[in-house]
């Protein structure tokens, strides 16, 4: 394990008013790792993810992306975010743009790619997620699963160094989940560094290189999927996994 660290989280704290959601989280994510974050709802896993790209501003601790401290006041957050891809539970596609338009927009405006380059890359990425025949469709004309795959393509088109997946299959009908998970699996196989918040235990076990179990704002247990799933040490982990099964 000599791969460089892509994301480093040190004693991360986050409060919403008097409610402390993250109570000191430490985590290193090395290049090529697929870290699956599990935990009951309200355990702070989504907030942890959103602190990585500063959609939530931490109230304490440090978040590092490669050699940049993301939550330092002098850091241009936008420059960091363009290298951190994020996929949301509710897709958040831009409804006024086609699939291709969604994938092209930030390439053009943020990376300043030429129209031709952006379009070529958009089509490449949409083909990669299996939507080569849907490039000119508007989000409203696509199924949830297809929309989510467009959202993945949109993030990938920015050539991110790490991808954040925030419960990306939770809003999907069961029969549509498969397609999205397959895309993520392919991505992992291609060596993408990924932080995944999910309830898909099958995915965590098959694709995850490391599983992190969170509860009440702290990491309770972490290890390889085999360690955590087959031989959980902590009572809360056992309890949670027991409920899932």
């Amino acid at each position: 394990m000599t791969e460089p660290v892509v994301v480093r989280i040190k004693d991360l704290r986050k409060s919403f008013g008097t409610l402390e959601v993250l109570k000191g989280v430490d985590m290193d994510v090395q290049r090529g790792e697929v870290v699956v974050i599990l935990g009951p709802s309200g355990s702070g896993k989504s907030t942890l993810l959103r602190c990585v790209n500063q959609l939530e501003a931490p109230t304490g601790g440090e978040v590092w992306f490669e050699d940049i401290q993301v939550n330092h006041p002098d850091t241009n957050v936008n420059r960091v975010r363009e290298k951190i891809g994020m996929v949301f539970q509710s897709f958040n596609l831009f409804p006024h743009l086609t699939a291709k338009g969604n994938v092209m927009l930030a390439q053009r405006k943020v990376l300043k790619r030429s129209k031709d380059d952006a379009e070529r890359i958009a089509i490449e990425q949409l083909e990669r997620v299996g939507l080569g025949d849907r490039v000119d469709y508007y989000p409203s004309q696509l199924s949830g699963g297809q929309q989510q795959r467009v959202a993945i393509a949109r993030a990938l088109a920015m050539d991110p160094h790490v991808m954040l997946f925030d419960e990306v299959t939770s809003a999907l009908d069961p029969e549509l989940v498969r397609g999205v998970l397959d895309v993520m699996k392919e991505l992992a196989k291609a060596g993408m560094t990924m932080l995944v918040v999910t309830h898909e235990m099958g995915f965590a076990r098959d694709v995850g290189t490391r599983v992190v179990f969170m509860d009440e704002g702290v990491i309770v247990e972490e290890g390889t999927p085999t360690e955590v799933f087959d031989n959980p040490q902590n009572e809360r982990t056992k309890d949670f996994l027991g409920h899932i099964k």
Binding site: L55, H96, A106, R154
Partner: peptide, 24 residues
């Protein structure tokens, strides 16, 4: 979520307004 999606792609506030929020 629209604003967050735009931000997560590295767009500035002005860009997000101009290209994502205002058109909608």
């Amino acid at each position: 979520g629209q604003f967050e999606a735009a931000s997560s792609l590295g767009m500035t506030y002005a860009q997000a307004m101009r290209f994502v929020i205002i058109p909608q």
